[in-house]
Design a binder for these strands. Sequence first.
DNA 1: ACCTGAACACCGTTCAAGT
DNA 2: ACCTGAACACCGTTCAAGT
Lengths: 235, 235
Amino acid sequence: MVKQRKGGPRREESLSRENIIQASIELLDSDGEEGLTFRALAERLATGPGALYWHIANKSDLLIAACDSLVARTMSQIPVTTPNETIRAVALALFDLIDAHPWLGSALTSSPGALPVVRVLEPIGQQIQALGVPDDQQWNATGTLMAFILGVSRQNAANRQLARAKNLDRAHFLDVVATAWSQLDPKEHPFVSTVVGRIRNHDDRADFLAGIDVILAGIASLQSNSRPPLKRQRS
Amino acid sequence: MVKQRKGGPRREESLSRENIIQASIELLDSDGEEGLTFRALAERLATGPGALYWHIANKSDLLIAACDSLVARTMSQIPVTTPNETIRAVALALFDLIDAHPWLGSALTSSPGALPVVRVLEPIGQQIQALGVPDDQQWNATGTLMAFILGVSRQNAANRQLARAKNLDRAHFLDVVATAWSQLDPKEHPFVSTVVGRIRNHDDRADFLAGIDVILAGIASLQSNSRPPLKRQRS
DNA sequence: ACCTGAACACCGTTCAAGT
DNA sequence: ACCTGAACACCGTTCAAGT
């Protein structure tokens, strides 16, 4: 709406990488992932689309930078208590962050080895080390947790964006799924039939925490057994 | 290349939904996710882009249909043995399928309650029931497994598509990540520093199976809550 | 009923030209 | 050094017009 240029030659309002990143976050939060276009961003910053390319490499670069800005701030605020509690805190913080900014989901997916992912992987790995997990199992334990945390958070974000794109609220979204599932043949879908009733009032956040606890229990039980409890024979 | 029209008026080659879906799969497999455009698809089928809309609703509809075609075939071929072995077989089959067709990753993400997901959820839930997990924990156990399986498979697919887009093979891709991680300050990243050496030769498939076993162990240990979990797993 | 293909309303990115 | 904005090479989707 208001073009900053009008007011006067304030140096602070000139284009900069940080400037552009913050404007991108606002745009992504207000208009969703497909709301971030170079034209819309340029208009908000009262410039032309080409000018942005002086400060950022491309759209992927911009998305990762916007993502890292939020992830860095969030992860720096996690209190460290016991290992399991800290892992739960990191997991929940990321879940809530992605829930509040669904576009983070795809940003994290498309930059697997980049800084944002490291900011989550590192504290979880440290707590796995603090739990006393043997060296050769640390990667397995941490990777499993990490995959679960990112997987759930991203699917949650995707659901939210999907509902938004179709102009459905959460209740309607779940209703569509529940209705579809209840029309399946119960003989062929005994499991889905038994859980379909719980779909409408389930709590994504509670389910997420329960999953974290299943994995933490698995990590603990693999350690406490002197012999490997789940020996695989063949694929 | 060859326009079917030339040959003659073969009725079998006229446009149909099934026709379009199979051509889409070929296009997605050969050219990747961004290779599927209505113009390219129309050219391959020797027609115009508008004609496709007579048979399919939109691009999302097309992607889900193509996805379901592959998932249905794969899931129908899983042999049912013991619960844990069957769960591993389902998980591995989906992992390998998405690995071979990375575009399945986004197709599954963008249709959470749809048929393709149900085809995986149902057999896993059935085996969780067969394991004797109590009713009120079945959703938790199945959902945790499902989230992990889809999460890992999708990230794997995303990595593959990322590497493809940058014209990197797997070795180079891992090298980029390993190099970036080894340049981080080891004091601030004690965990990442210890695992960076194993990045270049890790096996995604083996890591995936190890994660499945962690979760299965967690499910087993949560069931026998009071006693130490020394139950034999081969049922 | 089914197909055609031009047209609409967009994209990300580039680049000669400006200051 | 930094910005402008037209231009390029695309998209998904629509729709009047054809058969």
